[in-house]
Design a protein around this nucleic acid. Sequence first.
RNA 1: CGGGGUGUAGCGCAGUCUGGCUAGCGCACCUGGUUUGGGACCAGGGGGUCGAAGGUUCGAAUCCUUUCACCCCGACCA
Length: 501
Amino acid sequence: MAKTGISPTRSEDYPGWYQQIVRAADLAENSPVRGCMVIKPWGYALWENMQGVLDGMFKETGHENAYFPLFIPKSFLEKEAEHVEGFAKECAVVTHHRLEPGPDGGLVPAGKLEEPLIVRPTSETIIGHMFAKWIESYRDLPLKINQWCNVVRWEMRVRLFLRTAEFLWQEGHTAHATKEEALDETRLMLDVYAKFAEEYMAMPVIKGEKTEGERFPGADMTLSIEAMMQDRKALQAGTSHFLGQNFSKAQDIKFQNADGGESFAWTTSWGVSTRLVGALIMTHSDDDGLVLPPRIAPKHVVICPVIRKEEERAEVMEYCTSLAKELGDVQYDGKRVAVFVDDSDKRGGEKKWFHIKRGVPIRLEVGPRDIKNDSLFVGRRDQPKSFGMPRAEFVERVSEILAEMQQGLFDKALKLRVDNTQQINSFDEFKAFFTPKNEGKPEVHGGFAECYFVDCPETDAMLVPLKVTPRCAPVDQDSEPGVCIFTGKPTQTRGIFAKSY
RNA sequence: CGGGGUGUAGCGCAGUCUGGCUAGCGCACCUGGUUUGGGACCAGGGGGUCGAAGGUUCGAAUCCUUUCACCCCGACCA
């Protein structure tokens, strides 16, 4: 009776649970290529929905889509010193452009390239190169470009969606005439990400600034949104970088001012990736499977016909089809309710669990008995028990129910974060917070520690043995004077610290 | 790149120490039947060069040598 859809459960083995969710919900699987994943239709549909919403938000804020090459000349990457250092260790490099039959019957690379090509780990350098050509006058600014693409970072350890060698993302790149304008852009896009995370993914986030050690290689300032997963670890869900004039100086992105003088542009970059799918899973899903916020769910309602005798089939199917049509005409979140009839020949229980595991928000079961009463048997993914409801009432309320589920998921996630965020005033307290009670089999512990700190090497060094990292200094904080719990130095900055993905 | 571990059917595993008939088990899959408002049951069936190469032997999943791949823990990261 207490059987769960997913085994192991979150409390038994959280990483194991995560893997099983990805599998049971049919989101993705490992590929023959190490570190790379195959995203399956249900998982890709989630990404497409995210893309759709974000793309609209980027366009509303004045950005245009473009596309730049997958390959970057090695020399480009060498131009910005910190950038090189940050990415060199994880680059895939193309050195040849041809295969020839080898002595043992296999194929061997031939046609060595004059200059090796890097498979983009990110595109600042090649986009900057083009920006330098496109920008001549202050009238060409601001230049606000986004691209949807894949990037490759040769990671040593991978987890589906959270960290893969190749991942899908969007990267925005902008150039501005003034520092202030570029800073505004950096903050604006962080706000866009936060709005998307909270309102669409129902995932509460903390907006903040990264410490120097956690900053994007080559950036003057990195802002991020940080979310708490159900194991209380932090996940960086999106970043927005103020690049100052570092890249424009390295790549000669300059323009002529109104007064005839010449200036370097101020640039930004910002991105979110398929990691958001991982974030979605770890924010809402439970021991029965995936749980999807309705605004991101590929389908809102699945109708499962209950056919007991062959004679009933025609009538039940007809009823389901007409119900699907009627529901499809209802508006939710500015679009039609996404409804489908599952007429596969799975048995009832199996079919029900199939959709529970995949996180379809609402299941409707329709059999002869329901048809007779003109009612539906309704299962909500956020509630354990199904219930009956008159058809007309459901049609009228479906949009409201979806909205309620969306809000419920957000509230629940926010409560988890609030309950596991602690104000910390001493290093001893800090250590205790991040030390599991049972060393042999560490339980879920810790959370977000909020405390005064000074961003310096001493602080970083004290965090290393605890496996805790500074997540960010929240942008929304009042600056009362305090004392750094690590170094004892005076400070006005409070930071969020956590174990992280 | 360090430390540990694992490779046997689509997935999860047993068998390896102590070599022996046709390599098993659970789930999944296919067929037939009984079922069907909640992850069915019965019967039958398909699918393996036991990670790869070499060696020892009458005989190797099992022993020896070499090698490859993957996983976990570190270091590194969206």
